[in-house]
């Protein structure tokens, strides 16, 4: 139903070329991995797809039943996890999730949040302020935040970052579950994460 298409995306920072000519189409159930050296633009490409950064050239389009989704609305159809996306440290996990539900116009379902917290093994930590979380726990909460509205497009920048083996297994399960209908783009150089993908784009090449 949903699909993503990028056409000849190119990004310059000042006069420095980061990457050029990135084109791909992603259909439901597909997982794409973006690899490359540090500074090759993996995170930038994900931010461009999310609409957080403008490409220097090229187009990103998302479709629902072949009808284009407006750029302003596209953000509502994606969930993103990235090291640069922080959560509110002075709030508890539940307060963070409640905020993201309300601001996205989803009715706040405490039971659903509890289920997600249980799945991510954070159920014991619901009343703790996020500033007291370890980096791995924060990463788990970021993943929950990204999945809260069941987005058809998941953008995962270094999803296994700071996670222990249990956390990595949960990420694997999420990507596998998401395959059933949604699309996933993973930016990583971890072999294990790249192996989830059906296709790989190497930005260093």
């Amino acid at each position: 139903m949903y699909s993503l298409k990028t056409t000849n995306i190119c990004k310059y920072y000042s006069s420095t070329l980061v990457f050029k000519g990135v084109s791909f189409q992603l259909n439901p159930g597909e997982v794409l991995a973006v690899t490359g050296w540090n500074g090759s633009g993996k995170s930038t490409l994900l931010r461009i797809i999310a609409g957080l950064v403008r490409p220097s050239a090229g187009r990103v389009e998302m479709f629902f039943k072949n009808e284009p989704i407006l750029k302003e609305s596209r953000r509502r159809f994606l969930g993103m996890v990235a090291p640069s996306l922080a959560l509110y440290e002075e709030l508890t996990a539940f307060e963070n999730l409640e905020f993201f539900c309300r601001v996205r116009g989803i009715s706040y379902d405490r039971k659903k949040c509890l289920n997600l917290m249980e799945r991510f093994e954070l159920i014991e930590q619901t009343k703790k302020m996020c500033r007291n979380y370890s980096s791995g726990m924060k990463q788990r909460l970021k993943l929950i935040q990204a999945l809260l509205h069941n987005p058809p497009l998941l953008l995962l920048d270094e999803p296994g970052c700071n996670l222990d083996s249990k956390g990595i297994k949960i990420v694997e399960d999420i990507i596998s579950d998401h395959r059933q209908l949604g699309m996933t783009v993973i930016a990583s150089n971890e072999k294990r994460e790249v192996d989830y993908a059906d296709r790989v784009i190497n930005l260093s090449g």
């Binding site: 139903m1 949903y2 609305s73 509502r76 159809f77 309300r102 601001v103 996205r104 116009g105 989803i106 999945l147 509205h149 069941n150 987005p151 058809p152 999420i174 579950d177 998401h178 059933q180 209908l181 949604g182």
Partner: peptide, 17 residues
């Protein structure tokens, strides 16, 4: 977790003012 058993997508978006 995301799709329903019938396969219908249940994305929750855009109902807020």
């Amino acid at each position: 977790m995301h799709p329903t058993k019938s396969g219908r997508w249940t994305t929750q978006t855009g109902s807020s003012t």
